[in-house]
């Protein structure tokens, strides 16, 4: 292939063709297909019936518990991950902890899905290590106390295993970006540590924190494998309901599936829109 002649400049977009084609075929059009399908009536034409079908108690309950689990795991993941990241960056822990911790975070943030469910079953399931240990050594039966791995808190606790490391991975560079001079300048101007964090550090970190919260939320909201392997279909969170729909709907009306999927996009979309909006407010001072 020869180098392009000078006039080829206007044809530069041709180089984007493979990527554009790929993105259209396997990302954008399938997603749009779902969105359009949610509003298309049986014989063609526009309808709100499918979306209205979402407003039944069982589906609303599924959305509600999904959103609550995602919010809880995203929020706790943010807070705990932030605390750990702080302890290795500005908390004054020895430097050798940092490398292994970040590597481990890389591993754990990708250790999701089915194996993670197994790990938690082996730990906090009815025969799990911790369950048995607490029962035999301390006489505490956590299941008798109302704990259940196949529940809101059980799933949240499991999700945290990949949410916290993801937060650590994202927020550590941001904490490194806090320059020592800012803290020192604030200090020498008479600010207490709390005043420095409140007036300088947090506002600077805000965009990153919000973005990570939105990402963690979407991450938990779309997760199927862990929940499915953990609970089968006994816990009706949205992705599992959709999963069951897709598996069983071949001959049924697929439109409730469209509507469910559309609902999922709307929820993660709202999460991200909220993030973009907050970010534009928080980021006025960035180039």
């Amino acid at each position: 292939m020869a180098a392009p002649a000078p006039t080829a400049r206007s044809w530069a977009w041709l180089g984007m063709l493979p990527f554009t084609l790929f993105a259209l075929m396997f990302l954008l059009v399938p997603t749009m297909f779902i969105v359009v399908g949610a509003f298309r009536a049986e014989g063609g034409g526009f309808t709100l019936d499918h979306v209205m079908n979402l407003f039944t108690p069982s589906i609303l309950a599924a959305f509600s518990i999904s959103i609550r689990i995602s919010l809880a795991s995203a929020f706790l993941g943010c807070v705990i991950g932030f605390a750990v990241a702080c302890s290795i960056t500005v908390g004054g822990l020895p430097g050798w902890i940092r490398g292994p911790l970040l590597t481990f975070s890389g591993v754990a943030s990708n250790f999701a899905g089915v194996p993670l469910a197994f790990a938690f079953l082996a730990t906090l399931g009815r025969l799990g290590l911790v369950t048995v240990f607490l029962r035999e050594w301390f006489g505490i039966n956590i299941y008798a106390l109302g704990f259940n791995l196949l529940s809101f808190w059980g799933l949240t606790l499991t999700y945290l295993f990949f949410q916290i490391p993801l937060m650590i991975l994202i927020v550590t560079p941001a904490l490194d970006g806090l320059r020592r001079e800012w803290r020192e300048a604030a200090e020498v101007l008479g600010a207490s540590r709390a005043q420095y964090w409140w007036m300088v550090a947090f506002p600077i970190l805000w965009p990153t924190l919000l973005g990570t919260l939105a990402l963690l939320f979407a991450n938990a909201f779309g997760a199927v494998a862990t929940a499915y392997a953990l609970t089968g279909s006994s816990l009706s969170i949205v992705p599992i309901v959709l999963f069951a729909q897709i598996r069983g709907d071949v001959l049924q009306d697929p439109h409730i599936g469209y509507a469910l999927a559309f609902g999922m996009i709307v929820v993660t979309g709202i999460g991200n829109a909220f993030y973009i909006w907050m970010r534009s407010r928080a980021e006025r001072w960035i180039k």
Partner: peptide, 30 residues
Amino acid sequence: KLPRWRPIVEFITLLPLVVPPIVLVFGYIR
């Protein structure tokens, strides 16, 4: 050649973090 495409391409590459995989595969199947 196309630095102006950059935001668009970046947006598209980030979409998979927003669109849940199960929605994506549902789209494929349909």
